[in-house]
């Protein structure tokens, strides 16, 4: 294989991985953030306690989270086909990635929101704030640094999942590593993809930590 072919393969894989990760993180948060908020708000000490609903939701979250990602991918092939019209490629993988990540992100958001001092929420209640106002003007703004830290962890996890998705036809760096490293024993490509993945994780983590620190006004 020529050098330019190799570069083309790798840059193409990198872009695909970035695309899968970015789009998955976006849609996962679109669903996971409200899920986390609902888990907290309807909890026993929440601002709108609904114990039965909260229990059911919590159980669903736990069940989805306990299915290993690869098995979930395979189980979701029909769904992917239905949503994006195909069961292979990056878009199909995004469907599975989002479904796997939403419960995980829901729990991350939940734990960030639970870190907020309950006294601040009470103060807002004492001022006549409605549950919606408390969510949007108190809980989320107060939890921003922790939510960013959580988003960095979630993004690196989704990045890892997307590489795994390469094993079942998702494309991207994961697929390259498996195709050349495992099946065709061209270890150089595998090592390069590994280095790029490590670099991406480092970068996301660094950016997350930096932003979380930057927007935390507690000290």
């Amino acid at each position: 294989m020529s050098e330019s072919q190799m570069i083309a393969l790798i840059s193409d894989g990198t872009l695909q991985t970035l695309y899968m990760t970015f789009v998955s993180v976006f849609f996962s948060y679109l669903l996971g953030l409200p899920l986390g908020v609902i888990l907290v708000a309807t909890g026993k000490d929440g601002i709108m306690p609904m114990p039965v609903f909260n229990n059911i939701l919590g159980t669903i979250v736990n069940v989805v989270r306990s299915v290993p990602f690869l098995i979930l991918m395979i189980a979701l092939i029909p769904l992917s086909r239905f949503v994006v019209g195909t069961s292979i490629g990056s878009n199909a993988a995004i469907v599975s990635l989002v479904i796997a990540a939403v419960p995980f992100i829901g729990r991350m958001v939940e734990s960030s929101l639970l870190e907020i001092d309950h006294g601040v929420i009470e103060a807002a209640q004492s001022m006549g704030a409605s549950p919606m106002q408390i969510i949007f003007k108190v809980m989320i703004p107060e939890a921003v640094p922790s939510l960013i830290t959580g988003a960095a962890i979630a993004s690196t996890t989704i990045l890892g999942y997307s590489a795994m998705a390469g094993a079942v036809g998702a494309g991207g760096l994961g697929a390259l590593a498996i195709r050349f490293g495992y099946h065709r024993s061209e270890p150089l490509i595998m090592y390069i993809t590994l280095i790029i993945l490590v670099f991406m994780v480092q970068f996301i983590q660094f950016l997350g930590d930096y932003m979380a620190r930057k927007c935390d006004h507690r000290k």
Partner: peptide, 21 residues
Amino acid sequence: LRQMRLSVGMIFQRFNLLMQS
């Protein structure tokens, strides 16, 4: 009740301010 609470202010031992605002 929320309406009524507007006319009843409250302060606390630990202040309970929005720390990110």
